[in-house]
Design a protein around this nucleic acid. Structure first.
Ligand SMILES: [Mn+2]
Ligand SMILES: [Mn+2]
Ligand SMILES: [Zn+2]
Ligand SMILES: [Zn+2]
Lengths: 157, 157
DNA sequence: TCCTAATCTGGAATGATTCCGAAATGAATA
DNA sequence: TATTCATTTCGGAATCATTCCAGATTAGGA
């Protein structure tokens, strides 16, 4: 398991010499408490705003970008969705529901060997990304008429 | 192997009752001839424009979207890149070079079982997407100074 | 040849994300 | 504690790929 925690993130910010501003602390909290949601910038913004006097969306974008660049979290893009941030650094597959947008972690039992790829193609893998799209249990339980309808992929709004 | 071909695509357009317009034929050509590039809308637009008197970018977007929706090609999104279109319907991993943006197909030797996921989580997989990011052989051959520089992720421009 | 639903088009709209210069502020230092 | 300044924040403007739209065109069946 390699899930982000408040202490872990704050520790890393200190190590990397990044300042502990109220905005960053609020974003850290929002990130940790919503990590299972694979939150997007807007959700983090809304949650962070509850935790500190002032935060701007610009700051949230910049901060999440900084965190991702530093490797504290991962930056994710999905088909036809806003970008999301990943707090589970473990290698796993993200199961994305085409209907409700829910993203579920699925830990891979056996992983594919990047070494084979390096040998065969000379391509050095630094980062993997695996997604399965489909329908989650909850959505499958819905009546069919509803299934045919529009998809809900937003986290807020 | 399940790679798009001109004949295959035109056949499917006929089957599905879609009209064979000069724009679509040009787009089909552009798509097939650049399938190994995982082309984006702009590249297809540029290539299609060479092959017919009139095409608009709007039409290219609409057509590629239509093709993707009909399952003739796949619609792909990548981290920090414009959307691309996939002409290789075989299940495979896309190896994306972080530096030059090149995308290489890597056919999976053993695939992960969606059945296990259905049993364990009740999540029904309809579509898989697997990407490995890293550096391609060509980019690895470059001197280090250049490697540190900016990334080229566009296909044109 | 006619007819019409399908298709095409250019320009405007969208909207998430990025950019920017100025103001604010952690936190290191004296 | 005061000083200092690189870092960080912020609002608003800019970006830009993609989508939308309403009117014009057209493929292809009758
Ligand atoms: Mn995940
Ligand atoms: Mn591919
Ligand atoms: Zn669902
Ligand atoms: Zn490369």
């Amino acid at each position: 398991m390699n899930m982000i925690t408040k202490e872990g993130l704050i520790g890393q910010l200190r190590e990397k010499g990044l300042k502990l501003t109220p905005q960053r602390l609020a974003i850290v909290d929002a990130l940790v408490e919503n990590r299972h949601l694979h939150p997007g910038a807007r959700l983090i913004y809304a949650e962070a705003a509850k935790r500190t006097k002032t935060v701007s969306l610009s700051t949230v974008y910049a901060t999440l970008g900084e965190f991702a660049q530093q490797g504290l979290i991962k930056f994710l893009e999905f088909d036809r969705m806003d970008n999301r941030y990943e707090g589970n650094l473990e290698e796993h597959i993200n199961l994305v529901c085409r209907r409700c947008g829910k993203i579920i972690d699925y830990h891979i039992p056996t992983s594919i060997e990047p070494k084979d790829i390096a040998r065969e193609l000379g391509f050095v893998v630094t980062d993997a990304r695996m997604e399965y799209y489909g329908y989650c249990r909850d959505c499958l339980a819905q009546p069919k008429e509803v299934m045919a309808g529009e998809q809900t992929r937003d986290q807020d709004g």
